[in-house]
Design a protein around this nucleic acid. Structure first.
Lengths: 247, 247
DNA sequence: TGCGAAACTATACGGCGTGAAGTTTTGATA
DNA sequence: TATCAAAACTTCACGCCGTATAGTTTCGCA
């Protein structure tokens, strides 16, 4: 009987946990759907509960606070973004580097334009009064994205290094201590030949891409040009050229 | 008597309008103060009214809705940003162009770091549920900022033109019809020699600067590096170099 | 002095996050 | 199979929000 009992115990306990996980997932799914249809502000506990046929307070059994729910959403969405760009990276041959860089950048932009609300959730003021917590999956996903960028920098470094090495009186030069240890823990093992200035280059590439895409997602570019796509292609060309890749 | 009467009328009418203007200004000042201390979400009609010893509904005599107030704030703040970068431009000699470009870019970043909430108000999701209206001072200020950027591009165009002229199978080339007429109405008279590709270059410079500054203002850079200033200087160096200015 | 408009208040509605307390459901156990 | 504790969920309440409507005060002007 012990065997049967323990099996029953295990299965029922598993059932409870499974139901709980399903409800948790449903809450997040509904929240994402609300966000997709009405923007990040549409994520309200009451609206989610309404959609699920529950009371708003029932959600407190799954998330201690609305901010915790938003944090979980950010974690998921940021992870999805990291997956998307990593996939584009993996799906493109390493040679020529320019092609791979273009693929990565286009994946970044495509994801952002395809998930504008998600982009806002990650990189904007997510939701009224929200403040990001310390740990979680989001910083990890951010490091993954930056590591991907470091891959771009690493691929281009043989050509770009000479151009982007620290020089000039206004450029003090970079050291490992300039960067977050958690980021370096990912980057350095993956790209052992990349110097600190190369990591800095990766972050600057991030800035360029983020700026163009961000202006576009938030609708600022569309008030200046009707061809943001062209602009992005030009930006990519300039980026590749500035990396000495002539691609 | 007529003279006296008309003088009285004028003065009292002036008085009414002055009081009204003062109250309007106070509402905006309090709103900006609340935003500075608690972020854009702290801008609530009730909080403003509390601060002013009024009822929330009294504000409706000055702004038809909360969004109208936010729009007015955005107009003011965006205009202040445009003033700041224009002033930096005006205060720097035209030669060498690299120095002027650095000054403009630094003014942009300094303003953003000094007014992070204002930056978020302009470029982020300003406030829950807010949607920007069509006209107003904000688009005008945006055009002023872009015109300033066009000035950077124009100053560098003799050197940068050959590098950034349309070329390559992936760069279709720009035409005047690619850009907003309102923007061109400002840019073309100011810089008659700048071709469409130069305007595109200006927008791309905007993207680069916006990206770096935006990541910094929203706290994403600080999770990767402890030296965002260094990074920005490097970015400036790369920008100047990519413009062929060797500055 | 009194009129009319402008400025402001009072009250109310629905929606929000969330805390406290109560109720139902559910799975293990004796 | 009856029981019991814990988990899931509801109810009620509070204070916040924007805003609509109606009523009141203030004040320049004729």
């Amino acid at each position: 009987m012990t065997g049967v009992e323990s099996a029953t115990t295990r299965s029922t306990r598993g059932r409870r946990e499974r139901l709980r996980a399903e409800t948790t997932a449903e809450i997040k799914d509904v929240a994402l759907a609300l966000m997709a249809s009405g923007g990040p502000d549409a994520i309200t506990l009451r609206a989610i509960a309404r959609e699920m046929g529950m009371t708003a307070n029932a959600i407190y059994g799954y998330f201690a606070t609305r901010d915790d729910l938003v944090t979980a959403l950010i974690d998921d969405v940021y992870t999805a973004l990291a997956d998307a760009v990593d996939a584009a990276w993996a799906a493109t041959p390493a040679d020529p580097p320019a092609t791979r860089i273009r693929a990565w950048a286009r994946a970044f932009r495509d994801w952002a334009l395809g998930n504008p609300e998600g982009f806002r959730l990650i990189y904007g003021d997510p939701v009224p009064g929200y403040r990001a917590p310390e740990g979680g999956a989001a910083p990890d996903a951010a490091h993954r994205v930056c590591t991907g960028l470091a891959g771009l920098a690493d691929a281009a470094w043989p050509h770009a290094g000479p151009r982007h090495a620290d020089h000039g009186p206004e450029s003090p030069g970079f050291d490992w201590s300039d960067f977050d240890p958690g980021l370096l823990a990912k980057v350095r093992p993956a790209y052992p030949d990349l110097p600190p200035a190369g990591v800095a280059l990766a972050l600057r590439i991030w800035g360029s891409l983020h700026g163009t895409v961000s202006l576009e997602v938030y609708g600022h570019l569309s008030r200046q040009t009707v061809s943001p796509g062209k602009l992005f292609d030009q930006e990519l060309g300039a980026l590749v050229r500035s990396l000495g890749l002539n691609g």
